[in-house]
Design a protein around this nucleic acid. Structure first.
Lengths: 120, 120
DNA sequence: CATCCATATAAAAGGTTGTTTATATAAATA
DNA sequence: TATTTATATAAACAACCTTTTATATGGATG
């Protein structure tokens, strides 16, 4: 696939408010669909749809545990890249130049996608 | 503005194939609209439209020189961030793992947006 | 095996965005 | 000032994407 086309798909995947919210929630720890629905207050089908888009485009991966399906960030460096954009555009508004990161947990994450003990 | 909303706008701005093509062309050296039209083979109004979107969202800035308007990357680190995404998703296809960068000129660029001598 | 819970899928509606076509502005020049 | 060149703007249309509503799948448990 064309380099430009690949980049376009990545950015398109990240260009949705709700998907970014899902990523930010998941980046702390892998989560089941139900947990994401509760956290984001979006409808279950809508969350499922966005999760599919994120998975199909290489942002997330899944792991089944009984009836639950856990989603997690495929490569934690994706969070670094998102953080980089946030840093670059932090001062595009005059006010609010707090240095809050997109995902506060990303620095201490081990960057090798180890999964925690199973949660229900 | 909401952090997530700001990120969403950045990614939305970058999620268009033609806009990425324009950025890649401009990143070598600032260019007039006519030069971009020639290089991308897009219509002039379409190029003008995309340039406006890129400018309004903080990717590009402009400089007038007579009847010509030159567009250039506001902050060269934006190219680094785009390159980072390209690196991260380089191996999502099996074949083609060449290490071509989004913008080949970005490493030696001075990162302070100095403009070259005027071109017609 | 029937029921319940968790998640996925499909179809339809609505809004947003990219593109084209046509026209306007603005600077330079004769 | 009339004309040419460079760029911007506006309106209209089509295509795409998000969201909702409704339904299906699939595992667990009684």
């Amino acid at each position: 696939m064309d380099d430009l086309k690949k980049l376009q798909l990545i950015f398109q995947t990240l260009s949705d408010y709700n998907r970014l919210g899902i990523i930010r929630f998941i980046c702390e720890r892998e989560s089941s669909v139900g947990e994401i629905v509760k956290a984001t207050k979006l409808s279950q089908p809508l969350v499922s749809h966005h999760l599919r888009v994120l998975k199909e485009n290489g942002i997330l991966e899944t792991k089944r545990n009984g009836p639950f399906i856990f989603y997690y960030i495929r490569d934690k460096r994706i969070l670094d890249a998102i953080n980089l954009f946030q840093e670059l555009f932090k001062n595009s508004d005059i006010k609010d130049r707090t240095s809050s990161k997109f995902c506060s947990g990303w620095i201490i994450s081990n960057h090798n996608n180890k999964t925690k003990e199973d949660r229900q």
